[in-house]
């Protein structure tokens, strides 16, 4: 129990199912990023996965679009304390993308056009829990929201869902990504409030 704030009533009286601790609901879609929005055309877009042995699999935009597509509706949770329920995405499951990648790695580093990085345990990318998404609410993903394609890992705080995704590198080591070097948690489970160091 925290300090009592005299006169503060707040807006909500009942716990909201599905809302992790310390979060509040929004209906808009705030944008957070560390620098200018990279502009990547589908023609120049490439996505690759590299295993810990250095073997690289690369997809062009057309090859990526030809993979089995999934439509998912998920809740997303930003570490800055907003959550958004029922967001609709279309993309390719990481299970599909990792199928045929021979790896014993425990960790993944997502790398973006523009230089952003974030580390995610490989377990969090498998089992129907993560996608490379290229549509939001039925439309191509806008550049400021990570288009052409972004990582979507709704079970973790949204900084793990790297925008402008360019590659995923698998590793036996859990190296910190961008925010993880700058004060944010290595794992980032919103239900455990794994926000900061």
């Amino acid at each position: 129990m925290g300090l009592f704030s005299p006169g503060f009533m707040g807006r909500r009286r009942e716990p909201v199912p599905g809302l992790p601790p310390g979060q509040h609901l929004v209906t808009d879609f705030p944008v957070l990023s560390i620098g200018p929005t990279p502009r990547v055309t589908p023609e120049e877009w490439r996505f690759s996965i590299t295993s810990e042995s250095g073997l690289m699999t690369t997809w062009t935009w057309d090859e990526f679009q030809a993979l089995p597509q999934e439509d998912v509706t998920v809740d997303i949770h930003c570490v800055t304390s907003w959550s958004k329920f029922g967001t609709g995405w279309r993309g390719v499951s990481l299970d599909t993308l990792l199928d045929g990648v021979d790896t014993q790695a425990g960790f993944a580093m997502a790398r973006s056009y523009g230089g952003y990085t974030t580390n995610v345990p490989l377990d969090e990318l498998r089992g129907g829990k993560a996608w490379v998404a290229h549509q939001f609410d039925g439309s191509p993903l806008a550049p400021e929201h990570g288009g052409p394609a972004r990582l979507l890992v709704p079970a973790l705080y949204f900084w793990k869902s790297a925008k402008w995704l360019r590659s995923i590198e698998l590793s036996t080591r859990n190296d910190p990504g961008f925010w993880e070097q700058n004060g944010y948690h290595m794992h980032g489970d919103p239900w455990r409030e794994e926000r900061y160091w």
């Binding site: 929004v26 808009d28 944008v31 957070l32 990023s33 560390i34 800055t80 907003w82």
Partner: peptide, 11 residues
């Protein structure tokens, strides 16, 4: 260039 943004009106 480093950026920081204020989200939506409901922030």
């Amino acid at each position: 260039i480093r950026t920081e943004r204020y989200g939506g009106a409901e922030g």
